[in-house]
Nucleic acid binder design. Structure first.
Length: 213
DNA sequence: ATCTTTTGACCGATT
DNA sequence: TAATCGGTCAAAAGA
């Protein structure tokens, strides 16, 4: 019954994924250095952007060799034509010196306690795993959206210092952001639920694949 | 009582 | 074929 049946008890990530670089969702407040890579895990979540192949980052420039190997792998998968319905969205908070004091989770490593139930992206996440990757250089945390019918996942990669290196979203939410009760004063500054077309319009920004590092 | 985080183990993919 | 890496599961503990 669980909507998240994509991962059958056997490990291994769903392989289908297409790279679509989109503007960071929370970038509104995160800053210009954010990047959001989003990929769609497997089934629904994303609208097949068949017509977007033209802008597919698969055109990854050779110079991008500096890009994280993971991203390269993703691009590779896409190029191989694995599945065109995945949209990886990476949010790079890699500002080399992002003070670990952002509102929730995203900005600051939360070593313990509720990490980022409602992160800057406005959704609720549940952590289901953590791994040291890239030679223990980074700690990658795995989150799932807690919404009943939402298959969206995200990976948050942190450095050993706790700084967020990047955030990768898998899939798109097909539900509105959970209503967050905020003081009116704050509500004025930040509208929680924006009319932003979450999935209706797949923001595909090709030129934005610039990945940092 | 419920939900989330933590952590080790398992399994598949890749090299 | 074996080793390594990466992603997820599941039990336990804490809030």
């Amino acid at each position: 019954m669980s909507p998240c049946n994509e991962e059958s008890s056997s490990g291994s990530a769903s392989t289908s994924q297409s790279v679509t670089v989109t503007p960071a969702e929370g970038s509104t407040e995160e800053g210009p250095q954010n990047e959001t890579k989003q990929m769609n895990p497997d089934n629904q979540a994303l609208i097949p952007q068949a017509d977007h192949e033209g802008v597919n980052p698969s055109a990854a420039p050779p110079e991008m060799s500096e890009v994280s190997d993971r991203y390269s792998s993703l691009v590779q998968l896409v190029q191989e034509g694995k599945n065109a319905s995945v949209t990886p969205e990476r949010t790079l908070l890699s500002s080399p010196r992002q003070p670990p004091s952002l509102p929730t989770g995203q900005g600051g490593s939360v070593p313990s306690g509720k990490a980022e139930k409602a992160s800057v992206d406005g959704y609720n996440w549940r952590k289901y795993g953590q791994k040291n990757v890239k030679g223990n250089e980074f700690i990658r945390s795995y989150y799932k959206c807690t919404h009943p019918n939402c298959l969206v996942k995200k990976q948050v990669e942190r450095s050993l210092e706790g700084q967020i290196i990047d955030t990768v979203y898998f899939g798109q939410h097909d539900h509105p952001k959970p209503q967050v009760k905020v003081p009116v004063a704050i509500g004025i500054v930040a509208s929680i639920v924006e009319p932003k077309p979450e999935k209706a319009s797949p923001t595909v920004i090709e030129g934005k694949r610039a990945l940092y590092f």
